[in-house]
Design a protein around this nucleic acid. Structure first.
Lengths: 253, 253
DNA sequence: TTTGGATGTTTCATACAATGAAACCTTGTT
DNA sequence: AACAAGGTTTCATTGTATGAAACATCCAAA
C-alpha cells in the first residue's frame, strides 16, 4: 500500500477534460487541423484524439469542413463568446441579480440611469418567452414618460427635477402638476407602473436601486406585453424587485 | 445480411470531456454561476463539478469573479472565437440576405439546418418591433413540428425521412400519415406554414434554400406573434422569401 | 496492377483515472 | 451559538479512458 508521491501538489483536475481542452486550444493557432496533426501537437494517442474529437463534435465545439474533411471550431464557441463581458460598472455588476429576477418573474428586466434630461438603458436581460419585451442596451428615452423615468425622477435631487421640468424640451403633452403628484405617490409606494405609456403594447413596473448611503443609483424595471402584464401581477412583482434592488445596492461601494 | 449498417449509434465519446463541455454550456444562459448551481443544472455530483471546474479554470476557460466568488467564462473563449472560420458557413454567408428580408417584412428571420433527428437554428435576425419573435441561435427543436421542420423534411433524402419517422423519439402525438401528406403538399407549394404548432402565440412560414445542384442547404423562416401573422400575410411573405432564398443559394458553391 | 505511405477508424484487455458519498471547511445569517 | 449554504477534500470502488495494434481508405508512385 505504498503511496505514490510523485507530485507534491495534488492535482484535482480531470485528465480527459484537460486533454479535450488542449485539443480545442490547438485551434488558436490554426483554423483547420487533421486528426493526426492534432495528435502530434498534443502528443496524445491517435485513438484518444479521435474519441475526444468525436465528443467535441458531438457537442458542437468543433465541426468538420465538408471540403477538406479537417476539423475546425464549431458554433458553440460563438454562443459562449457572446456571454463574455465583465467590468466594474453597475451594468455588469448587477447582471447576476437581473438574471435571477428574470428567472423568477419570466419577463424582461432592464436597468436605467439618468443622463441629463434622458434615461439610458445600460443593461437588460430578456425574458425567455418567445413573445417578450425586447430591450436594446444603450437605448435613450425621455424622462417624461415610463415607469423607470418616474422612478429616476422621484428620487432625484429636487434641483435636478426642477431643471428638467423647466427644460424647453419637456413634452408639452405631459402635465407637470400631474407628473409631480405622481412622483410623490411613487416615493410613498416605492414603485412606479406604466401601461402603454411610452410604447404601445408594453407595460412596465420599476423600483429604485440605492447605494448604502441611500443615494439613487439606477432604476430597475420589469416589462412585458400588456397581454401578460396586468396591474395586480405587476404589484406582485414589486417585493421580488425590491429584494433584488437591495442586493444590488449592497454590491456598490 | 444487411451490408450497410449506417449510423450504428455507438458512443465513441469520452464521458469526462462531455461533462466538462456541458458545464461550459451552462454559461450560455447565465454569465455567472456557483458550483452548486452548476451541479444542479447538469445533474452531476458536486465533487465532479468541482474537479471539472478546476480543470476548466486551470486552462483559462472559466475564472472566478473575485466579488461574487462565482464562476464565469475566461479569456480562452476569446482566443478561440477570434479564430472561428466564418468564410463558408451559411450562418455567416446568408446574414446580409436575412437582414434585408427582416427589413422588408419587419418580422424575425431564422435559418435552420437538420442535425440528426433535430433541427438547429444556426442564424437569426430579429424584428425590430418591441414585441417580436425572439430566436436564440443554437436552439434545437424536434423535426416533427413547425414550418421549418417540415421544409427540412420535405426536401430531405427519402431514406432520412424514413429513418426519422421510425425513430423511437418521434412524438406519438404526431400522426405520420398526416405528416407525410403535408410534406407532399409543401413540395408542391414550395413553402410551409405553422400556427402555434410548436410554441403558443407564435406563427411561422418557411421556404427551402437549395444550392446550384438543387440540394437542400437549409430552411429559411419568418416568424412572429399570431396577432400580427395571419395566413394571408404569411402567404404574401412567400415571394419575398423565395427571392432571398434564391440569392442565398447562389452564394453557395 | 501492386506497393507503400499517410490518413482516419475500430477493437480489446487492462490499469488506473474518474467517480459518488460523506466528511469536512468557511462564511454569513438567525 | 446554532444553523444553513456553498465550497473543498478524502477515500474506496468501478467502470471508463486508454494505448497498441489491427483495420480501412485513399492516393500516388512504381
Amino acid at each position: 500500500m505504498e503511496k505514490k508521491r510523485i507530485n507534491e501538489e495534488k492535482k484535482m483536475t480531470v485528465r480527459a477534460a484537460e486533454r479535450a481542452l488542449d485539443i480545442l486550444l490547438c485551434f488558436v493557432q490554426q483554423s483547420q487541423l487533421g486528426l493526426t496533426e492534432i495528435a502530434k501537437q498534443t502528443k496524445l494517442n491517435k485513438s484518444t484524439v479521435f474519441r475526444l474529437l468525436a465528443t467535441l463534435e458531438n457537442k458542437g465545439f468543433v465541426k468538420r469542413d465538408p471540403e477538406t474533411d479537417k476539423y475546425q471550431l464549431g458554433f458553440r464557441i460563438w454562443e459562449l463568446a457572446a456571454n463574455l463581458d465583465q467590468s466594474n460598472d453597475p451594468a455588469i455588476l448587477f447582471l447576476p441579480e437581473m438574471e435571477s429576477l428574470r428567472d423568477e418573474l419570466d419577463e424582461t428586466v432592464s436597468l436605467y440611469i439618468r443622463d441629463g434630461n434622458e434615461r439610458i438603458r445600460i443593461q437588460a436581460v430578456e425574458s425567455k418567452q418567445a413573445i417578450r419585451r425586447v430591450a436594446p442596451i444603450g437605448a435613450r428615452m425621455p424622462l417624461a414618460v415610463g415607469a423607470s423615468s418616474k422612478v429616476l425622477m422621484a428620487y432625484a435631487d429636487p434641483k435636478v427635477v426642477d431643471q428638467i421640468l423647466n427644460d424647453p424640451m419637456w413634452p408639452s403633452g405631459v402635465n407637470k402638476e400631474v407628473y409631480v403628484a405622481q412622483l410623490n405617490q411613487i416615493r410613498q409606494e416605492g414603485y412606479a407602473i406604466s401601461i402603454e405609456e411610452r410604447e404601445a403594447g408594453t407595460a412596465a413596473v420599476a423600483v429604485p436601486i440605492f447605494n448604502r448611503r441611500k443615494q439613487l443609483i439606477a432604476a430597475l424595471a420589469v416589462s412585458g406585453p400588456v397581454s401578460r402584464m396586468n396591474v395586480q401581477k405587476m404589484i406582485d412583482f414589486v417585493p421580488h424587485m425590491v429584494r433584488a434592488a437591495e442586493q444590488m445596492g449592497k454590491k456598490i461601494g
